[in-house]
Simulated assay, not measured.
Amino acid sequence: MRLPRVKPEHAPHRSGDGTVRLGGALYGIASEIADADGWAWTALGLMDGTRPPAEIAAELRACYPVLTCEEAEGIVATLLSSGHVEDAAPEPCPELTEREKERHSRTRDYFRWVDLTPRDHGWEPQVRIKNARVVVLGLGGTGSHVAWTLAAAGVGRLHLVDPDVVELSNLNRQILYTEPDVGRLKAEVALDRLRQVNSEIGITAEAAAVDGPGRLARLIDGFDVLALCADRPRGPSGIQTWANRVCAEAGIPWVSGGYNGPLVSVGVFGPGGPCYECVRAGIPPCPGADYAWPGVTGASAGLSGHLVAHDVLALVTGVMSTPPGYFHGVMLLDPDGHVYARYPSRPDCDICS
């Protein structure tokens, strides 16, 4: 890092006992430093984007002669590795065009805020998104929002799959379609719409039904993540079980989401965590557990789709991702009703135990 400065969203605050807090109050981002002597506070003040690390360490030692050179350099190095500091003179990023940088500048700002991994230029998460290959299976209430969000985010290769045509009853929640599209294939309409959203990525589509695990395996071949937004066939041996086994065989993660009335939930599964069948076995039976209930608003469908897209982006960037093997979501009737379920692998599971 050539000219370190504290990220503006992580501006430090110092309490009366000398504790320094960085990153505000955001869960998983904030850090606290016990700093009774004021060394860290002074070093952070010197990190204003005008000095290289060696000069910061030298000025810190000038302020506190009790520090050795090694100690001053160690304090600076620790702060640089904390993720709360960025380079005011970042390295260039040749992987993205200037047009792409303008398009995704707000995304870069977001990842700068939440990403605690020191970066060369801050565009690394966006480069990973550009290089990602994602299948979106199902373009209904959840899937239409997923597809739009991933296209807008700049996922470099999107493949859209849905066998259905647009119906009038879809228009209360399925963001990609309008009244003139009724009767047209969803895959065809979605392809047209998303190419207008982002002409710089590769988007393909097919109007096909997935009728078994073999078809699903061929569909995901060569892709990095599956966004499963289809809900047929349902049941214990339905499409989610197919995805669980096929994606495990392929070694790729998958995200599935939907809505059961006011309950919006998403599952994230893949290498390194309990599989879908193990986690699902730990959840008590409940109505609509396979996303089969029809009651939905544009808001609940949008929430499910954006949560799925968020988890896909977390997987492909590696930023703020949780190890796979869990369901999470919200209960819209309860402001405090955050949903989280994670259960260990069953000892006899041949997929993840």
Rank of each mutant, 00 (worst) to 15 (best):
R232A: 09
P236I: 12
C247P: 11
G212S: 04
C247H: 13
G214W: 02
Y259D: 06
V225P: 12
G202A: 15
D231F: 02
G212L: 03
R195Q: 02
L219Q: 09
S256C: 15
L226K: 10
L194P: 01
L228I: 03
D192V: 00
F223A: 11
D224L: 09
R215S: 12
I239Q: 09
C229P: 07
P262E: 03
G214C: 02
I239N: 08
A243D: 04
G238R: 11
N260F: 01
R215T: 10
N198C: 03
R215H: 13
R195V: 00
G258M: 10
G261V: 05
R234N: 13
D231G: 09
I252N: 07
W242Y: 07
I239D: 10
N244I: 05
V225T: 08
S256F: 13
P253F: 05
V246I: 01
Q240S: 12
P213H: 06
Y259E: 13
N244S: 14
G235R: 12
A208I: 04
V255P: 08
G238S: 11
G202T: 13
R232S: 04
C247D: 10
W242R: 10
F223P: 12
C229H: 06
A227L: 06
D224Y: 06
A217G: 09
A227I: 04
S237E: 14
G222K: 11
P236L: 14
G257C: 07
S256L: 14
L228D: 13
I252H: 06
D211I: 02
A205M: 06
V246D: 04
N260T: 15
L228G: 13
V225F: 07
C229Q: 04
G258I: 15
I252W: 05
A217P: 02
N244C: 14
P262R: 01
W254I: 08
G202F: 09
D192L: 01
P236K: 15
D231R: 11
N260K: 09
G238A: 12
W254D: 06
I203R: 02
S199P: 13
I203H: 01
R195M: 00
W254Q: 08
